[in-house]
Design a protein around this nucleic acid. Sequence first.
DNA 1: CTCTGGATTGAC
DNA 2: TCAATCCAGAGG
Length: 214
Amino acid sequence: MNAFHDPRARPGKRLERRFYLRPVQTVARDLLGRLLLCRRGETVSGGIIVETEAYDEHDPASHCFAGVTERNRVMFAEGGALYVYRSYGMHWCCNVVVGRENYGAAVLLRAIEPTVGVELMQRRRRGLPLRDLARGPGRLCAALGITLDDYGADLGGQSVWLETPATFRRPKVLATPRIGITKGVETPWRFCIPEHPFVSGPRRLRTSVALGPS
DNA sequence: CTCTGGATTGAC
DNA sequence: TCAATCCAGAGG
């Protein structure tokens, strides 16, 4: 474990409830640079969030667009819980639930830079290189050991939570269309730290591009 | 009840 | 480029 990023050595400040009670796009971009942590027994692993996507009930790309179902139920809870779903029949993906109760919204956590418990994450990820450990939403959950068991977990609890790292600086933010969807494809609700090597997706969605003539 | 396709990944 | 893998959601 890297002592510099060890939350016990340099304690960060846990995000408070009110952090989650804001517009989902605001929360999605404000999560960049924050520390995601996951305890499994005695071990903790996690890292700095570098890529997110926002979804809400008015958005045809969202799991909760058509209303409450068994799978998306927790998206309608008060902000500050974890929404976990199975992707393509084989991967887990995790979201931070946002907003007031009965309003469906969540932020998909798409990538972290691993900083805490790196060796543990590497073991979970078959010894892959650091850059590949948690670059992509399925990989992120695989690295941290997050599964459906974490569905609905309270981010104020001791299993999965978020902190503002002691070293936090508000990063630059690049907004782009979201990845892998077939509806709402133009809506620029994906947020990442531009040029950051631990961000997923094609290069054109990771780079700060000069705006063309309008 | 059956059928379809997906907020992905990794191998070829 | 494409298969893996499976269940939520939609439709009959």
